[in-house]
Amino acid sequence: MQLLREIRWLLTKEIQLEWRQKYSFSGVLLYVFSTVMLIFMSFQSMEPLVWSTMFWIIVLFASVNAVAKSFLQENKARYYYYYLLASPLSVLISKIIYNTILLLLLALIALGVYIILLGNPIVHFPLFMGIVVVGSISFSFCFTILSAIAAQVGNNATIMPILSFPVIIPILSLLVILSKSALVEEVDIDLNIDFLILLAIDGLLLVLSIILFPYLWRD
């Protein structure tokens, strides 16, 4: 109960903070618009497979930028204050929930802009939406713990992509495989296995995050 109360309190704090600093989220949105525009200008039209791969690359870059700041936006002194008030588990879980909401919103907006500019080759729309939801959750699980690591390095803009891109490759590969089947008439029968593997990786990352986060937390 204590945990749930702390999570709710921290989550409200995160959302209020984001609302007060609207320029930060607007910046990420503009980043998505510019990237989609860039791809639209360079490709004009594209194959369905290239379409979905480019979509995931855009979401990946936007997500890294959106999450990288999650442990940096508040100063160190304020974190010491949170140490006194909340357990590491509730801080981690509130960050993961918050990042999931943020990335899901980002991915949906990106998808909207992307479809308007580059056309819509999706055959099974509900399936694709499901993949986007699972993808955002996976990105959030992976990037939250890595941004906590990157935050320890301090003011280094390159460290977050360096740390997270190789780690995200298995997740991204599975998302590309899954999206492929939403773009063709016949749904691949192996789909469930890919979904299960993706969920297994998410579970693995979540367990590792819960075990390892307290070590990053203690300073």
């Binding site: 590969s173 495989i177 390892l212």
Partner: peptide, 21 residues
């Protein structure tokens, strides 16, 4: 050390996933 633990497990997961590609 925290990063090292994460990447080892991701590497092991990778060995099983990449062949699906």
């Amino acid at each position: 050390a925290v990063y090292n633990i994460i990447i080892f497990f991701v590497y092991i997961a990778l060995i099983f996933i990449i062949p699906r590609l």
